[in-house]
Deep mutational scan, measured.
Amino acid sequence: MEVRTIKVFTTVDNINLHTQVVDMSMTYGQQFGPTYLDGADVTKIKPHNSHEGKTFYVLPNDDTLRVEAFEYYHTTDPSFLGRYMSALNHTKKWKYPQVNGLTSIKWADNNCYLATALLTLQQIELKFNPPALQDAYYRARAGEAANFCALILAYCNKTVGELGDVRETMSYLFQHANLDSCKRVLNVVCKTCGQQQTTLKGVEAVMYMGTLSYEQFKKGVQIPCTCGKQATKYLVQQESPFVMMSAPPAQYELKHGTFTCASEYTGNYQCGHYKHITSKETLYCIDGALLTKSSEYKGPITDVFYKENSYTTTIK
């Protein structure tokens, strides 16, 4: 009895394709271990004539594949690729409408935090270190965002349907971005203890939790000093293409032309909904596939993004 075979390709990165001759009487799992086709788990399936010449994702289970996976995804987590594939199996079914010149995501599976993050990423200057993220990001900007969303979920250790947080998501993504040249110098002034300067680099240099107003941050924000008295913390120097200011959701007025974009969060910790506000020729609110415009805006804002380049204080 002759062994019926077909020729397929296996890959971990969709760049390096490895030619395989597979036995049609055995499952993919018996031949390769966990195997995925377009995100779908085909591990328990036997090869079919229609699979001839198709590319299958496999887990990096030998040295060659491990090197290829690390170079593309910059992670050695053995569960990463499987999590990416199972997320992709959902995100490829989502709709990605162009809204006001940006790629958004039609609401499904509690994905409003991903839509808000995706919209924000198209408006701030950011370059990702893992080629996987950078490639998928370019495709997302062009309207094909399924891979990018699935990668975000995998890097953030999230599953489809789980509630997510924009600030946490951005923080994970910033860790995989090139923020080497970003720098922030802060000064804390206390009447009792004097003053202390701190220099922050990388992710810490672009994120701040405690106030939404970048102007206020430049002037000074009140913080408790270690001595128990009130101290003032203010920005001395900022070198970065953008800054992200966050605070627990509270009524906040966004003035046209003073910011790049913002995240609105309605609801409580267990259950809520994100919308995205962007400042173009007027203010726009993007909620999944829905767009509304207004000249002014007041609502429960939790993150505001500002364009920056270089700032030095005039406070002496």
Rank of each mutant, 00 (worst) to 15 (best):
P78F: 09
Y84C: 04
E68I: 07
V243S: 01
D13T: 13
Q175P: 08
F128K: 03
V3T: 11
H176E: 06
P47H: 03
R4P: 12
Q20D: 14
S263I: 06
N14D: 15
Y57T: 10
L163W: 06
P47Q: 04
K298R: 10
I277S: 00
A136L: 04
T192P: 04
D41P: 13
G210H: 02
L179W: 06
L17R: 08
G202K: 06
F80E: 03
F148L: 12
Q238E: 01
D62S: 12
F217G: 01
T5I: 09
P300K: 07
F32M: 12
V22P: 10
A177T: 08
C149S: 07
P78V: 15
V58G: 05
G272E: 00
G33C: 04
L114K: 02
R184C: 04
Q270I: 13
N178P: 04
H48C: 13
Y137L: 12
Q197A: 07
L114D: 03
F148N: 01
H176T: 05
T116W: 02
N14A: 07
F242T: 01
N187Q: 12
C193P: 03
N110W: 01
T282Q: 14
L254G: 00
T55C: 13
L59H: 15
T198S: 12
T5R: 13
K298C: 09
I45T: 13
N178W: 05
A247R: 03
L153D: 03
R83H: 11
I105Y: 04
G39T: 12
Y284A: 09
K191F: 07
D38S: 13
L179I: 06
L59K: 14
D62V: 08
Y137C: 08
A115E: 02
K316A: 15
Y73V: 02
V22G: 10
Y72G: 09
Y284C: 10
A177V: 08
K127P: 09
K95I: 13
Y36D: 05
Q222R: 09
E239S: 11
F32S: 08
T258A: 10
Q196N: 14
T211M: 11
H48K: 12
Y137E: 05
T312A: 15
L153E: 01
K233N: 07
Y137Q: 07
S279T: 07
L186V: 13
G101T: 06
E264W: 01
L114G: 02
K93N: 13
L200E: 11
I15F: 09
S181F: 15
H48D: 15
L212T: 06
Y234A: 07
G228I: 01
H176F: 13
Y311G: 08
L121I: 09
F80T: 04
D77V: 05
A87W: 04
P97M: 07
G220E: 05
T55W: 08
G220W: 01
R139L: 11
V189Y: 09
V21E: 14
I315E: 14
N157S: 10
E68Q: 11
R66E: 14
W94V: 03
L65C: 09
K7L: 09
S181G: 09
C261T: 01
D287Q: 00
R66Q: 14
L200M: 11
Y36A: 05
I223C: 13
L290H: 14
T169W: 02
C261D: 00
H48N: 13
A142P: 03
C149Y: 03
A140N: 04
P248Y: 10
S294H: 14
P241Q: 14
K233R: 11
I6M: 12
K46G: 10
G164R: 03
Q237P: 01
Y113F: 15
C112E: 02
V58H: 06
Y214C: 04
E215R: 06
T313V: 10
Q98S: 10
V8F: 05
A136S: 12
E52H: 12
T19F: 10
E162C: 05
G267T: 06
I223F: 13
V21N: 14
P47K: 05
T103C: 07
K7V: 08
L290G: 11
K158T: 04
Y96T: 04
A262N: 02
V12S: 11
E2S: 07
Q216A: 12
G202Q: 04
S181T: 11
T278K: 00
S295I: 15
G272N: 00
L37A: 12
K93D: 11
F148Q: 02
E125V: 06
Q31F: 15
E296P: 10
A115R: 00
